[in-house]
Design a protein around this nucleic acid. Structure first.
Lengths: 282, 282
DNA sequence: CGATTGGTTGATTCTACTCAAGCCCGGTGG
DNA sequence: CCACCGGGCTTGAGTAGAATCAACCAATCG
């Protein structure tokens, strides 16, 4: 029981014929994947692996000799502490690629299936070859890494600065946006998000008990309703206000009228905050 | 005043002759940078820019058409909120490369010089060309992105799960490790870390006041002493214990005796924690 | 010299954690 | 069929860790 739970054997294997479809995440926008290249991809990737909810795909500290494309299901990327604490770094949805660790390093994180899930592995060595042969695939790979970094920075910012309410709102907002394919959210829209309150807690750095209270708050204040893995977005505006308090060139806008900006700065009481905002860090 | 503070003009410019040296971060381990390639790098990068402490290198929301190699000085990467909150995502030391944003995106973060600093910019288009021409430089670029992601995940985990003490310890530990070139830390070693308590606060998601208290705690408990930008590592062991509570294959060790592990699981009172540790997330 | 920045400390408040109990529900087994 | 159990969810009461508010000191700078 123990060994299979920690490192379960894949349940079934099936050779995937149209492998580009299974690697949409990696291949999206790749236009020069000629016959030679797609044959190489076909040859490079391994057999599809199927996991049950809760199965460990790999563990922190494992050798990192392959990367994975998530075909179906949800996966959590997490970082484990020796004393049992766990931080969920990211929730992955289909088409995500994961397990890319810097050459020579062991896995700095673990991956666990949250639902039944199927993934397609590719050996890193083979992927490296493929990248060198197919330039636009190389670019796509880099793009994935960069966008991943951006998401991590955003998550880190909300984790460091956000209140419990903001953290949870940001998480739900982001998951909903990805799940709906970035379609604009309408009031009342429903999204399936297969997370328990415990998982939300581990991702937001809160207690599951506190997550429960905050979810009630969000429900009572007409923002979102999250019950039985169903997220109902009551007020997209309220949700966005909570989830995205980013700056993003607010200063840039005001630079269109530098005089006013200058006046404002002179007149307003110069608090720590406003000063930091205007003058940068030091 | 306003405009120059927000987007200061570079103070001076100088063409750098031995540009590979100025791009050690990017070029480390790049062995096939032939005459052609290094000439291309020489042609690709722009004039060195020099900044004063506090100068903004770029802002969140700026167009991302160039990346930067940090030659001298320290730089903070941060994410700003509209209401004045700010999360420092990373502190950069010389040889770091920054500003790589996914193609087509605006900058999702800002960069500010913490000390006097000099950076060398390269247009992203030119760097892309260069990468395609010099394969090992391409690999190095990817390696940098991957290692950056790893660091972000680590930071996110300590931010989400760590106490104030652990967060500060982890930050100081990491900065010291990088500053000393990963040399093993000896008791009593001194490192210069040009941060204010306010900056530590913005990086750890705490108040500068609380940072102050915790630094006193760390001093009184004989871990580290941080005063006047000087970090003195009193007890490397205590510091590591606080800063690195990671798991890293603790479970892997116990798998050597699966029977015992099984027995233990059956006999021991099954707490939330131990269950989570053994069975993964779901 | 006043003004500003960084650091320090105390008193108070509040957010989120801990402990504890109970509910609902699906599964299991007598 | 019902009793039992575990997991997830919910709520309350008490607590702790960090934020807030408010001074004050020391060093630096124009």
């Amino acid at each position: 029981v123990y060994t299979t739970t920690v490192q379960p054997a894949p349940r079934s294997r099936s050779q995937c014929a149209v492998c580009v479809l299974r690697h949409r995440g990696l291949c999206a926008g790749v236009d020069d994947l000629d016959l030679d290249g797609s044959a190489a991809l076909e040859a490079a990737h391994g057999a599809t692996r199927v996991y049950d909810a809760g199965d460990v795909i790999y563990q922190q500290g494992d050798r990192s000799d392959q990367v994975f494309n998530l075909i179906t299901g949800w996966v959590a990327i997490h970082r484990d502490f020796a004393d049992g604490r766990r931080q969920i770094v990211e929730f992955l949805q289909p088409e995500a690629m994961f397990g890319m660790e810097a050459a020579g390093d062991l896995m700095g994180h673990g991956a666990t299936a949250l639902t039944n899930a199927s993934v397609c592995p590719i050996g890193t060595a083979k992927l490296d070859d493929l990248r060198r042969r197919v330039p636009s695939l190389n670019e796509r790979f880099i793009w994935l890494l960069q966008r991943g970094g951006r998401r991590l920075r955003e998550a880190q910012a909300t984790l460091g600065q956000g209140s419990a309410k903001e953290r949870i709102a940001a998480l739900l907002n982001q998951l909903a946006a990805i799940a709906t394919g970035r379609a604009p959210m309408r009031a009342g829209a429903q999204v399936r998000i297969p997370l328990t309150q415990r998982l939300i807690a581990e991702a937001t750095g809160l207690t599951s008990i506190h997550v429960n209270r905050v979810l009630r708050l969000l429900r009572e204040s007409g923002v979102v309703e999250f019950q039985a893995s169903q997220l109902r977005i009551v007020s997209p505006d309220k949700l966005r206000a909570l989830a995205e308090p980013e700056d993003d060139s607010a200063a840039r806008g005001s630079r269109l009228a530098p005089d006013e900006g200058y006046e404002d700065e002179r007149r307003a009481p110069v608090t720590d905050r406003s000063r930091a905002l205007l003058h940068g860090l030091a």
